[in-house]
Amino acid sequence: MDRRQSLKALALGSVSSAVLLDACKLMDKKTEEAKAGLPGELTIYRTPEEAERDKKILASHYYNDHEMATMTVLCDIIIPKDEVSGSASEAGVPAFIDTISIDIPSHQVPVRGGLRWLDVQCMRRYGKPFIECTQQQQIEMVDLIAYPERAKGNAELAPGVSFFNHMRDLTASGFYSSKIGIADIGYMGNTPNQWNGVPADVLKQYGISYTEKELKECVSY
């Protein structure tokens, strides 16, 4: 497909349905897994108006299947599974981005437009939208926009750099606020405890100590 034809194809939405279907299946499966970590019912105190709004948001979708599939691939490139924790899609990040885009509408145009920008770039370079590209092509494309310093001064890539920065932030927001992500980052709070001060080995590591006054006047357990 030459560039003009591929752009036309994209406009008509005739992206290979098999690829799209596969990606969607993958996404659905992962979203289901992720929803296990999300409450079916709201578990935090809400006013009736807030509860109604939240339920409505949870039940709505902003992005279409193709956009969700593209986002899923992209989020997993940003945060893949590694030896410490799972991937962004395993943590439900694409579903979170869908939800937060309804809740905070200022995400909608940059994300939707950015995904489209990415597809158009891939069409031009590889004759296929992003999710139909080979993994190598996807990484090649991502490498062009994932490093702001490297892309500096390249006006053609600038929208992609902004988009990728935005996606990186959204992915981090969604991932590290999920069960998987909180465990990964090692946050150990949000549980009743008694604060006894900085652990002794940490004080030693930084060569710092409490004063006699502090030890005498502060609460100890």
Binding site: I44, D103, K179, N190
Partner: peptide, 22 residues
């Protein structure tokens, strides 16, 4: 009775982001 204490970020549909009412 009206509790948000000890809830996790994923218990908020917006992961703790602010809203007009909060």
């Amino acid at each position: 009775k009206d509790i948000t204490q000890f809830k996790w970020p994923y218990e908020s549909v917006r992961r703790g982001a602010s809203t007009k009412t909060r």
